[in-house]
Design a protein around this nucleic acid. Structure first.
Lengths: 218, 218
DNA sequence: AATAATTAAATTGTCGACAATATATGTTGA
DNA sequence: TCAACATATATTGTCGACAATTTAATTATT
């Protein structure tokens, strides 16, 4: 049984189920960024009441996938280039700290799992959260608040824009090397180094996305 | 006009108004930590429908003040000692980064405001967010995502437990000195130093709370 | 013809009622 | 007396309808 990956429990209520569906639809771009959310339309589509749908929309707002304005309604979030880069800065801070704590908290067994995760990277399941290197470290840091901030508030947004731009914007080889260095630091129990490397790693990704965005615009 | 403090807009809908009221009630302990939230009871108390109240509860969940279980209901959050300390670790990461960016982003005018904020610390309005040193830096860093994470997801919780334990658990004098050092770094435009000092500052607070909790238990 | 004001349509916010689930109470049997 | 089951009560989840607000369409005015 894997300790690094955690089970995403099945939806209980209708609102939860609709949330899951809408979440998926937004992340994959089926409901495009910036588009308006029509309550009557979606309620009819999912064959649920508007009350349940509104509940689901509230959850979408909580994980930052939609923006709600009173008496106007919800729209799918659409990040500017700057806003996308802001997320990387936040990730640098949070995941850096996660790496530091993971170096002190992760067991040998967990580290082995992380290693195997890394080795089967660039596979088919590359876009699945549960098989993600970064996610493994966040779980491994044992700080549940930190985990929730990243997974509940940022993860969905990250997936959404990763879907648009491609995984790491296609710098997988160098990224994998950096991942390897981070694991080494974790195995050494060197929290300071782990944080340093993780921050540099995310800063690199950020820089890469930045140039990618510039090229796309020019 | 102050640029550091930002205006908290008045509630538009009933749900927003009830959210504000409940938020206040929870933070101040009027509704105690760990207690169950009764929808019919509160709906009657605030003279609103259960739909509006449930909407408000959803918002409380989004800012981590209550925990909801399907078909069971919401309870006011009650943090263990470890969970409270976890928040300080997250703050160290986020506010550290905020300080780093603030050093590059804050104008002279904003720094002056921050300074005056610091000088009139330990006053009556010490528990008001808008007059808070840390808040000023978070605003000053100009990273809106970072600001939202701190203010929307952690700020209410912090206020709640500050209310219970007292402001910084009563280490105001040494904390003020540390604040002064941080401002110096900001004025120098030294982001690295600002982050370092902010992290150490929050780590100190954490340590202080930690011993405070131990004494309370023993 | 373009703009402003007015009216009409559509959408969101709110409500009370019912259904589904969970909790409390009472009962039976060992 | 205690435990397990059955019943009753209360709470949450869901629904459809109405009210309030916003947006679209239409008319009027310069």
């Amino acid at each position: 049984m894997s300790t690094i990956k955690n089970i995403k429990q099945a939806p209980i209520t209708i609102a939860e189920r609709v949330f899951d569906s809408l979440c998926q639809a937004i992340v994959t771009g089926k409901i495009p960024a910036g588009s308006k959310i029509s309550e009557p339309e979606l309620a009819k589509y999912y064959e649920v009441s508007r009350a349940s749908l509104r509940d689901a929309i509230g959850r979408l707002e909580a994980c930052n996938l939609v923006i709600r304005r009173p008496n106007v309604g919800a729209s799918v979030v659409s990040l500017s280039d700057e806003e996308l880069l802001e997320i990387y800065t936040v990730r640098e801070a949070l995941e850096g700290m996660a790496a530091r704590q993971a170096a002190e908290q992760m067991s040998e067994k967990e580290l082995d799992e992380l290693q195997s995760l890394l080795e089967m990277e660039n596979q088919a399941n590359a876009n699945d959260i549960n098989n993600d290197f970064h996610y493994g470290i966040v779980i491994g840091c044992k700080n549940n608040r930190l985990k929730r901030l990243l997974c509940d508030d940022l993860y969905h947004l990250m997936r959404m824009y990763r879907y648009q731009l491609g995984r790491d914007g296609g710098r997988t080889s160098s990224a994998s090397k950096e991942h390897g260095l981070i694991i080494d630091a974790l195995r050494d129990g060197d929290g300071e180094m782990a944080e340093l490397l993780m921050r540099r790693h995310i800063r690199m990704s950020r820089k890469h996305i930045e140039t990618l965005l510039i090229n796309k615009a020019g």
